[in-house]
Design a protein around this nucleic acid. Structure first.
Lengths: 105, 105
DNA sequence: ACGAATCGTAAGCGGTGACTTACGGTAAGT
DNA sequence: ACTTACCGTAAGTCACCGCTTACGATTCGT
């Protein structure tokens, strides 16, 4: 369960832009860095972080390297948030119930 | 759609610990900061960030202030990750399909 | 009314992280 | 073979963020 590094990776705005650019499918580094307000090496560093977090897959294709979103990595985050959401809901429901009981007493 | 501040807030390890302590229900600041490796003011600052991100609700109760997880804030993150997950899956499937077609040709 | 408890905020400091420039390495084009 | 394109990495700088200490405000207890 390495959702920790995944959420840390997604905390950076630039990295979220990169992720958004990869929603349509795999892209090489140059295409990702095109028309972005940071340099290409900066994008490479971000891709490194995202890959280490398990959010991206890298497939060398001749001269270039194709980066794509790894569904499994995203799913880890999803599962963490699901448990958090469940606990929050049950706690919320119990608090409302106890508050109602306190009112009537 | 303020999932941006929510994911930034959850990026900090100390804030995730705070969130975990609130899974069972609402707690005052002193109870949250108890047996934690940071000072109470630090916890207050983190609670501030989490509240601003919409992840916590604050209800003043006399002398103390009760913090609880806000299900709606968590849900925003969930929805963001759901769309990301969907896009990642469709992109993954299409990539596999095109790769198969390339093989047969 | 006075002291204690609970909590938020201000000021200041230190460390981490994001960025740029510069460079090296590999593959493709001619 | 030589040049060009694509990409990762190293070194260095700088702003931001998390932490502590100190202080002030509000509320409870007696």
């Amino acid at each position: 369960m390495d959702y920790q590094s995944a959420i840390t990776a997604l905390a950076d705005p630039t990295r979220r832009i990169i992720i958004d650019r990869l929603r349509g499918g795999a892209l090489p580094v140059a295409a990702i860095a095109k028309d972005m307000d940071v340099s290409r090496p900066a994008v490479s560093q971000h891709l490194r972080v995202l890959s280490d977090a398990g959010l991206l897959t890298v497939t060398p294709s001749g001269n270039r390297r194709l980066y794509a979103i790894a569904p499994e990595g995203v799913d880890e985050l999803r599962r963490y948030l699901d448990t958090l959401w469940d606990d929050a809901l049950t706690a919320f429901a119990r608090a409302a119930e106890e508050k109602a009981k306190g009112k009537t007493k």
